[in-house]
């Protein structure tokens, strides 16, 4: 396994790179005035990214399928959100469904 010094260096590089990713948008967009169309596309891009995050984190684990318990829980949460249940209900229903299914032996 890596030495302590290697781990510190790796953490520093990951932190610096991640910060650069986060910092790029706020700094660059303050220097240029984006056309309205570009602003709209950025709004869509964030929705698309978050939707893809929802789908991959709900349905996949590593390179495969996430099993049944987690997708089922997220589906129940989605149904609650669709029916305009309060945020609290959505999140707790998703977690509780998954927890109960696992308790019953689902993967």
């Amino acid at each position: 396994m890596s030495t302590g010094t290697e781990l510190v260096a790796a953490t520093a590089v990951l932190a610096a790179g991640t910060f650069a990713f986060r910092f790029a948008g706020p700094v660059l967009r303050s220097r240029v005035t984006l056309p309205v169309r570009a602003e709209r596309l950025l709004g869509v891009a964030v929705v698309v990214l978050l939707a893809a995050l929802v789908a991959t984190s709900a349905l996949t684990q590593g390179h495969g399928f996430a099993g049944t318990a987690r997708p089922a829980g997220v589906a129940v949460g989605a149904l609650c959100a669709w029916r305009r249940a309060p945020f609290l209900v959505v999140v707790l229903a998703a977690a509780a469904t998954t927890a109960v299914l696992r308790l019953l032996g689902a993967s």
Binding site: V54, S57, R70, V74, A81, A95, T97, T98
Partner: peptide, 19 residues
């Protein structure tokens, strides 16, 4: 066992839906 792995996508989805 707490089902928290289902909470993360549910949180994002609930916030995303209006958009």
């Amino acid at each position: 066992a707490l089902g928290l792995d289902a909470a993360f996508p549910a949180v994002l989805l609930a916030l995303l839906l209006p958009s």
